[in-house]
Write a protein that binds this DNA or RNA. Structure first.
Lengths: 327, 327
DNA sequence: TTGTACGCGTTATCAG
DNA sequence: CTGATAACGCGTACAA
């Protein structure tokens, strides 16, 4: 690895001059610039980001914390954040928190130890204390928060749309899956759905889930039909849960959507691929990720941003798990 | 952020001493150690990894390059790598290459600029040149290679198992999806399947795909049935492609598995959740990721490792898209 | 327009 | 056992 010194020597100038052309700062004669650039090319020099980071006390690194990358919803968020960052020359250190406060703290420490300029966190149960003591900007993603920069979608409206769709399709015995209590967006969805169901005077049951993880959803689906066998409409807490319900419904010999309607939440990519296609509430995850990235960059660069808190609209995607109704 | 100097001052010792207790190197009196540790606790000091990295010319960071995190197979690999790394105090810088050589190089540069100690690459078409000039260990993941450290699964055997399963279920008009030509594991699967089909004197057609991405698989599935309408058995290039085929088959009014059998590849988590469950060749992705992480660490630490090249077994998972046969 | 010298936070060497 | 001090590679006053 060539260093700035090697370049300076090769070009017959001082390191300061090299640094100047590198950062296009200060004055430097056209001819010397040329020489330096040639030297850089000849030596295939590229500046050591670590030394830079040490001197400036800030890197080109951003921390991204997500609950579990194995849940297809998060890679979309992550991808959005990454693309936005890459276009602005930032790179990501990614960590999975698994809803584990210890891991979360561990990663936050890694982030600060590495001079990240900011962090995006899509963690469900952020220990706000940890974030309070942070000196760098933090953007909360997929998480509502009034007093902090955050990007999220309209969970309440999503809940409403889901409930309306199920109602429109004529379900009478609706079961509502309630996501983890500490996850704000999950609760928003829930209350949005409840709101509509109440207004419609519909009868519904509730089944609780404490996690979004794979391993639990199938058991949850089983429990759902055991407890509420008459269920003919399910508002799932997310697409994964919806799949599990579909799976279980088939096992029980129910036909979808004739015997039972199901609405998911998220619209992860596979949802359009399965059969029947899953009707679901779409969150623009990728765009949300990008927005979070953009917001963080603005914060990092100290730009005045009034819009530090933006909510994305959701949308009902009707596919094959709900009944079509004539308009 | 407290620095080592602050700690030294607080403890009334020199920075050298603090450094010693930090790294438990050299001698330090029990009493002074105590004082230092108290100071560390009091100041909530944690060492600046950037400065460390600068001095030692190596960080606690590892680069991970994957084609696209949005494809559910890769998060599993990534998760395995991450967990293994985390347990050994390494952290990940993740990049999506999108099969784009430029992006790949960009990330490789980022990696070296940040003094990563090694990289794991699950990229399909690695520009080996880039890796040759690298001074740090590289582990190729999900990719066969004789002369380089790599972790992959037995694609050929996978292809065989898939073909046998389809044959056992009695399909007569088989269509074989051939993955991207430059992706070695994909070709292995293909040739494994061909091998079995040839031996059985089975009639089969081939449809090519140049990518594994979401947006193309549905079109591909469409093309498949347009070109080979009589198809009653499909060996898909991966689970995502299999889903697309299932979807298309339903659209055409075909019943699975009665009219048509489908076998996927990967066994991504949703495959067990959809209905019918997807019969597929399971690759132990998470374990492979962990193995890659472990191997990289061994390489980094200069341990003698004969096993620099390990192949994981694959396994047929029979679910609902193949016909059960009496043994 | 250019060069010298210092500091960013650590670790390691070498006296004491 | 402990303390100065020189690196690590870079950016920036300050001088020239």
């Amino acid at each position: 690895m060539a260093t700035i010194k090697d370049v300076a020597r090769h070009a017959g100038v001082s390191v300061a001059t090299v640094s100047r052309v590198l950062n296009s700062a200060g004055y430097v004669h056209e001819d010397t610039r040329k020489k330096v650039e040639e030297a850089i090319a000849a030596l295939q020099y590229s500046p050591n980001e670590v030394a830079r980071s040490l001197y400036k006390r800030k890197s080109k690194l951003v921390g991204l914390l997500i609950p579990d990358i194995t849940n297809p919803y998060f890679p979309q968020l992550a991808r959005g954040v990454e693309d936005e960052m890459r276009e602005n020359d930032f790179r990501l250190i990614i960590g999975n928190s698994d809803e584990d406060e210890h891991k979360e703290q561990e990663y936050m420490q890694t982030f600060t130890q590495n001079n990240v300029v900011g962090v995006v966190t899509a963690t469900n149960d952020p220990d706000t204390q940890t974030y309070d003591s942070l000196r760098i900007p933090v953007v909360f993603l997929d998480r509502t928060s009034d007093d902090r920069p955050s990007i999220y979608s309209d969970g309440r409206q999503g809940g409403r749309l889901a409930a309306k769709a199920i109602l429109a399709g004529g379900s009478k015995e609706i079961t509502l899956m309630q996501g983890p209590a500490h996850v704000k967006p999950a609760q928003d969805r829930f209350s949005g759905a409840v709101e509509v169901l109440e207004q419609a005077n519909a009868s519904y049951n509730i089944i609780q889930t404490s996690t979004f993880s794979f391993h639990h959803v199938d058991k949850l689906a089983e429990a759902l039909f055991r407890r509420y066998p008459a269920t003919d409409g399910v508002i799932a807490s997310n697409d994964l849960a919806a799949f599990a319900v579909m799976h279980e419904a088939y096992k029980l010999g129910k036909h979808i959507p004739n015997d039972i309607q199901i609405v998911g939440f998220d619209d992860i990519p596979v949802s359009s691929l399965v059969s029947p296609g899953l009707s679901t509430i779409r969150q623009p995850a990728y765009e949300m990720g990008r927005a979070a990235g953009r917001l963080l960059i603005e914060l990092v660069e100290g730009k005045q941003t009034k819009e530090t808190n933006t909510q994305f609209p959701v949308e009902l995607i009707e596919r094959g798990t709900t009944r079509k109704v004539e308009q």
